[in-house]
Structure formats: C-alpha cells, structure tokens
Write a protein that binds this DNA or RNA. Structure first.
Lengths: 358, 358
DNA sequence: CTCAAGAATGTTGACGTCAACATCCCTGTA
DNA sequence: TACAGGGATGTTGACGTCAACATTCTTGAG
C-alpha cells in the first residue's frame, strides 16, 4: 500500500525497518543465508557473505529482537527491581550491575518501586516476567517483614542483593557484619571506651547486620553496649541522632551505619560545638566519594560495589544460561581511615558513660 | 555438565509459559476470544469472559511481550542512555524518568556508557534500536564537542535532557541560566561586591549555562567578573578550587556550579580557618538532600528533577504515539536559602551577623 | 413467521527469525 | 564415468499475538 496518508515526507509513520527478507531480496539470496551471515555462521560462501553484508549495510538492517526473542524464548535482558536510588549503595550497585550486564551483552530493564512492600515487589516481578527478561536482580534492601520470599518465585532466575534471608534464592552482598566490626574495632583500638551506633532502619537487612557487627564487637571486648539510635539512612535522621548524642556527657565515638547519616551526625556535633575528632570521633559506612570531603574527611568502611554488581550479574547469567543456581557470595569490605577518627581526649576524672538504654 | 539432568522435581527446565492457545483450550474457546479478554475488549459474553479469566489464572497466563512486540511493532519500552549516575542531577533525573515511564506502563531499558563520546552514544543508540525500544532519552550532559548531533538520528523518537543544542531534537532541561542568576543575585543582594564561580567542566552544556547566568548577572550589575575556576562536578575538584580561593584576599562569596563541588569548597574554606558564612558565603546548585546537612547547611538552587523527568517522558511518549515532536521545554528552578550565605563581614558598623549554629 | 441487524465467537494469516530438513553442485576416488 | 561425501544454499514451519474477515446466534420489527 502506498501508505495511508501522504502528509509531508516526515518519517512520522513508523517506517518498517528492513527485515531479513529485504536484505535477502537485495542480495539475491534466501532469508536463511542472511540469517546465517547475521549470526556469523561459517557455512556461507565468501562471495555470498560479502554480498549479504553489503546489502545489510545499504538497508541499515538490524535484527529484530522481538522476533528473535519470540523464536528463541530468550531476551538477553535482565530486570532490576530497585526501590530507591537515594541510598548511595543501591545507586552504585545498580551502576555496577548495568556495566557488568552490558559487558555481557545483556540489557537492563529497570523497574522502580514506589513502596518497598512485598506486594509491590511481586507486582514488579510480574511485570518483568511479562515484559520479557531472562532473570531478575532484586535490589530492595529490606526484610520485607513477615515474608519468607517464597511468594517471589516466578520460575525465572532471581538474584537478591543486599537483602533478606529465609528461602533466599542466590544472594550477593557485602560482608556487612565484618565491615561494622572493622569500624568498631578501629574506634576501640584508638582508645575509646565504647562506641555509639546510629543504625539504619529496623526493617533493613544490612542495617541489622551492621548493628550486629557493632554490638558483637563491643561484647567480645567486654565493653558496655549502649542503646543504638535508629535512623532511616538519610542525613536528616543522622542529624537528629547527632543532636541527641551531642547532649550526652561522655560521648567520644560514634559509628553511623552509612555515610549519609554520618554527615548529619557531623553537623549536629559541630553545631553543638563538639570538635571532630578531638572531642568525638565519627565513622561511617559506604565510602561515598563525598565522604573524602566532609568536614572533617570521614573514616568509613569502603564497599566494593563494583564487585557486588559484577558478582550478581555473573551469578544470574550463569543461572540463565543453564548453570546451577549460584550460592551465597560475600564481598569483603575494608576500612578507610581519615581525619574524623582519633584518640579520645584525655578523660576528665569522674566522667562516666551513660547507661545503656538510658 | 551432565547436560539433560533429572535432578529433583525442581522446575529447572524453562517450562514453556502458558500461551493464549493453552488458555483457549482450557476455557473451550478460540484463541482470539482469549486475546479479546486479555485486552479488555467489550465484545465478549459475560459467561465466556469468566471462563477465560478463570483459565488464565489457573494457568498463570501472561501475554508474551515478544510476540506482541513482533506483531505490533511497539515495545512499550523507553531506552535511557546515561553516562554516570555519580552526578546527582543525572541520578535524580533517571529516577524521575523511570517513575514517569512506569506510570505510563512503559518499561525502562538502561544503557550505561563507559565514555561520553559521540561514538559511544551512537553505539548505545544502535544497541537500543536493535534491542527494541520505542524511543530514547539521552541523559548525557556534555556538548559531545565537535558534533552537531545529526549523526544521532536513528529514525526513532529521541529526547535529550540537559545537553547540547545544534540540530537538537526535543529537549527538556532545567532553566540553568535563571538558576545561576538567582544564586548570584542572592549573594549580591546580601552586599557582596562580587562572586567567585566554581564552574563545571568546560564541555558541559549545563555548566556553560550556569557560568553564563553567573557572568551575565555580574555584568548586568556592573560588578567585576573574576575568572571562573573549572571543576569536574565532583567534590574533590571543589576542594581543590576551594583551596585556591581560600588563598585569595578579599574573597567573600563563592557560587559553585553544583552541591558536590560546594561541599569541597566548604571543606577547603574550613580547613583554611575561614568561617562560613561570616567570612565567606557559599552557594551551590542542585539542592541534593545532603545539602541540608552540610556544615553549614547550604544555600542552593533547587532543581525540580521530577518535573524534568516527567516532562521528558511525556514528550517522548507523545512522539512515540504519533504526536508531533515536542519542542524545547524548560523547568524553572528556585533558590533555597540556608545558613551558608550571609552578609559580608565588617561592611558597615552596626551590622550584626547571624549567629549560625550556635 | 421472515429477515435484517448486530452481537458473540471462530478462522486465517502475517509480523521476523532461525532450526530442521531438503536440494544442489562440486570434488575426488574407484 | 559413476557416485559418495560434503559444503553451500534454499524451503518450510513454528514461536504467540491479534487485525481482518467469516460465521453463527439472538433479537425484534414488520
């Protein structure tokens, strides 16, 4: 048909892309031969191959991935379900996942969540399955409380990053526990009697692990374990926590569960005229690039998000391509010491620590 | 590998998803009727519809998007090409784009770039076209120097966010110029003689506009226009710039082209024992959430990234669905004043400074 | 009671690709 | 010269969906 309307020459009409048959016709061969050339098969004559390639480039042929997917049942696409990118860890992990997937010639289909509930994750998963992905990476840090994750099985490979446990599918994560231990030990080694903790949200898996790492370290050394203060990962909550802490006599060291909250703590302490690190030492977790330029530069636990992302993709692709489900894998973090931590000031006689839970 | 293994009953074998025909058979109707039900057509008897829906849910039927795409030529997917997510603006824009697209039931295909060169953008675009998207949003802030963008036409709708100009397709952006003017005027209105500028990279389009906004404002008021210092958007470069600025006598006000660099400036000034805002006022651009908790809290230009993302998606979808190409659209930013800016010290006798933080 | 009109449902084929199978032709050996 | 062997190329059909068209059934006016 001559096209339904004429209008201006504008290519408004989704001009049919050149198909394999168009190329075949132009090159004077069969569609199958074109397909062979397109897929780099060897059993095509050199001259023919040349002719086909010429025809392809003349027509600007690109294989239609929908047709390929329909035929093969594979999409070469990975779905990523993510709640918020405001949290530095999620962001970096997503970035690493995207890079790793691209390298393997997989495409990333991003599925944002409005709420991190179990129902929403399920809905997102459904949309992804429908939307043609070969596997899914779940980047939603939270326990999804009250759930065992069983409801999330959809018959396609699933890798969970930085999240819950029960009935867990393949999981990749930073070793949060060790990271927290490193930070806490560092502060104790500097001579602090104990360390206060500004924790992440209660329903967060990694926040829980960091809290445990901190608490177990204190216990192992026989130090008092003060009540942690829970924040929501963001700097405002760190500020609020910092205000409470600043009011406590005897405060000398704070370990915040991430850098963003540490920033808020720093502000609160500074505004309370407490000097860091002379009066109070502060450590964070994540090592976001900005942490180097906090005032003062922040001692923090460095996470290798690139490794986390690459590992997650590796595990997922392996499963997609027929391998066995990957097992649990942890990436080891390391401590980066900067100016925000130091030895405690000379303790004034008679100063005692606040009681836990007070 | 043991290849065709038996294993446990686990559904390891990519079990064929139920197709429309499976549902049809179970419900005792034709495939077409199932299709009609699946697409919510009205011309289906109530009883039949019930039966079909029951069969669907029993089989867990989900339409195969590859087949749909093949038949319709539409994928309901939007490609997003992005260079780095380390820049807060890109991140937020991506997030907003993803949310807006999801709302319209479009999927996001993320295509990260290893380098922001013209060739790489072209390659990414090719992959996206092939990978089945209906349109593309380009989120690569840079001039892509020496290029007119013409080479990027691929016959599919393209919307460019926050980037260059020549032969530009539909473009959405914050009104960077006005934003910079707001910040600069704010500082001048406080009584500063002039304002120093820590600019973004030279090849960045928005950095250029912010620089222009700053310069034009100074000129319009007949103020001296000092040489700008160029950074790379990240806090380290802000720190370096801040160190240079701190050494200058007579420095009273700095406008950084984004918050991350402003953070570095704050650190450098603080380390040089210059007080903010008593000695030097500092303003940023972006209003990232952390800016509220800088020390001191940062006066900055608030960008409505949500609007930018939503507008971009709106424009793109409109074009995808047959509407006319959208034209240039700018989102107006506004200034958020916090504690990092104030009157210059020791101007007139009797002027009292705000007692920040204390 | 007849028949037109419209509603409900079924049948066919095409979208683009590629595995499986079918041909065709060349080469070298008996 | 005849024919097996193998490489090059062509033909067919199926993947799942849905528009277009075909058929069947229902209803009510005349």
């Amino acid at each position: 048909m001559d096209g339904v309307r004429a209008e201006s020459g504008q290519g408004r009409q989704r001009r049919r892309e050149a198909s394999i048959d168009d190329v075949a016709r132009l090159a004077g061969v069969s569609g199958q031969t074109v397909s062979r050339v397109a897929n780099g098969r060897s059993n095509v004559g050199a001259a023919t191959r040349e002719r086909v390639l010429a025809a392809m480039s003349e027509l600007g042929y690109r294989p239609n991935s929908a047709a390929r997917a329909l035929r093969s049942g594979r999409f070469r696409s990975i779905g990523v379900i993510v709640f918020t990118l405001h949290s530095y860890g999620n962001l970096r992990t997503l970035e690493a996942v995207a890079a790793a997937a691209t390298e393997r010639r997989y495409t990333i289909t991003l599925m944002p969540l409005t709420r991190p509930t179990h129902a929403d994750v399920g809905a997102a998963l459904d949309r992804l399955v429908e939307q043609a992905v070969d596997g899914v990476i779940l980047l939603v840090e939270s326990h999804l409380a009250g759930t065992d994750g069983a409801g999330l099985r959809r018959g396609i490979p699933l890798v969970v990053v930085d999240s819950w446990s029960a009935d867990r599918p393949a999981v990749v994560d930073t070793d949060q526990f060790t990271g927290a231990r490193l930070a806490t030990e560092h502060l104790l080694d500097l001579g602090h009697e104990t360390v206060r903790h500004v924790a992440g949200p209660r329903d967060s898996y990694s926040a829980g692990l960091r809290l445990q790492g901190w608490r177990d370290t204190l216990r192992a050394r026989g130090r008092p374990v003060p009540e942690p203060i829970h924040g929501d990962w963001y700097s405002d909550s760190g500020y609020a926590a910092g205000q409470r802490l600043a009011a406590e006599p005897g405060l000398t060291a704070v370990f915040a569960a991430n850098d963003q909250m540490a920033l808020g703590v720093l502000r609160a302490l500074t505004e309370a005229r407490l000097r860091v690190p002379q009066d109070v030492s502060v450590a964070g977790f994540d090592d976001m690039p900005e942490a180097r330029n906090f005032v003062p530069p922040l001692t923090t636990v460095h996470q290798d998000f690139t490794a986390v992302g690459a590992t997650a993709v590796h595990a997922l692709v392996q499963e997609i391509e027929g391998g066995p489900p990957a097992e649990y894998k942890e990436i080891t973090p390391r401590l980066t010491v900067r100016a925000s931590t130091g030895e405690p000031a000379v303790r004034r006689p008679g100063t005692s620590l606040p009681a836990a839970g007070g």
